[in-house]
């Protein structure tokens, strides 16, 4: 029980009010300087036409950058590639992860060995793993073509023939995203009380029935979380391009939106900061819309 009515105590409560903000300050300042300020700057930059990085001059405010980007065939290709990548990688990786996580959650022998094997990619650098995949994709000596030969599939030149670049990227992308997804789903699975399975078993439910009727519905919140996080991260596909293709592929056919931003920023000379910023804002809007749709669907299915 506290009573604070006197003037003196009001003074104390004012400094008390400031105190929490002081604790928050170090982090808040970091976010302001390194996150919020750049974001705002990118948005402003995207509307500055004819921007000069050295002099910080620009000719006018307007939609010029956007108009250019939206007509640029590289950007359109990048946008299309990114979308296709998301639409291939997300469903396949999510389904695979649910199955693998469910299996890992069983009491099987060597389950910790399997868990380690599945999670290893997470603690290894994307680039290092990418190079390993590059060897595996190798036309002549790659293990993937070797394995495919058992099924009578002719050797595929994954990395040098443009039409196979996209499948190669997707295979690698799916594999790379699995560990993180499996970890999240596994923790979701471990939160399901085993009592429900016992109850379902006594009621006569087999493993398939209890998977669809018990596991999936109870895992749904985690699946939505995974979908949301992974969609955002796959929209930003970029790193994966370098070890496999050293960039955008042999025919410049593997542009993604983030690669396009990099291209306007670094590859092109002089650098086109305005175009890069406009592309970044367009990507942000796309991801934002997608996330909103997902949240809306999640809210719908909850009821």
């Amino acid at each position: 029980m506290s009573t604070r009515t006197t003037g003196k105590k009001k003074g104390i409560s004012l400094s008390r009010k400031i105190e929490p903000y002081l604790y928050l300050a170090p982090f808040a300042i970091g976010v302001l300087v390194f996150t919020l300020y750049p974001i705002i700057n990118v948005v402003l930059l995207s509307f500055k036409e004819g921007y000069n990085f050295i002099t910080k001059d620009f000719t006018s405010w307007g939609f010029g950058n956007y108009l250019y980007v939206l007509k640029d065939s590289y950007f359109l290709q990048a946008y299309k590639n990114t979308f296709m990548y998301v639409f291939v990688v997300i469903p396949i990786s999510t389904c695979l992860s649910v199955v693998i996580a469910t299996l890992l959650n069983q009491k099987i022998k060597f389950s910790s060995l399997f868990q380690t094997a599945y999670f290893l990619p997470m603690v290894t650098s994307t680039i290092a793993i990418g190079f390993a995949w590059r060897f595996m994709f190798n036309y002549k000596s790659g293990v993937i073509n070797y394995l495919l030969s058992f099924f009578g599939v002719e050797a595929i030149n994954w990395l040098q023939v443009p039409q196979y670049n996209f499948p190669a990227l997707c295979i690698y992308g799916i594999w790379a995203i699995l560990p993180f997804t499996i970890i999240l789903l596994l923790s979701g699975l471990q939160n399901i009380d085993p009592m429900y399975y016992t109850a379902a078993k006594v009621d006569g439910a087999g493993p398939i029935k209890s998977f669809f009727r018990i596991t999936l519905p109870l895992l749904a919140p985690t699946i939505f979380l995974v979908l949301c996080v992974n969609t955002i991260s796959t929209f930003k596909v970029y790193n994966e391009l370098f070890p496999l293709f050293q960039g955008a592929g042999i025919a410049n056919n593997m542009f993604t939106v983030v690669y396009y931003i990099y291209y306007q920023f670094r590859v092109k000379s002089p650098a086109r900061y305005g175009y890069a910023a406009a592309a970044a804002v367009l990507l942000f809007i796309t991801v934002f819309i997608f996330t909103m749709i997902q949240r809306w669907v999640e809210a719908k299915t909850k009821n």
């Binding site: 009380d193 009592m195 016992t198 109850a199 009727r213 519905p217 109870l218």
Partner: peptide
């Protein structure tokens, strides 16, 4: 069951 084990969903 002791905790009833009603399916929450």
């Amino acid at each position: 069951f002791q905790n009833y084990a009603l399916y929450p969903h």
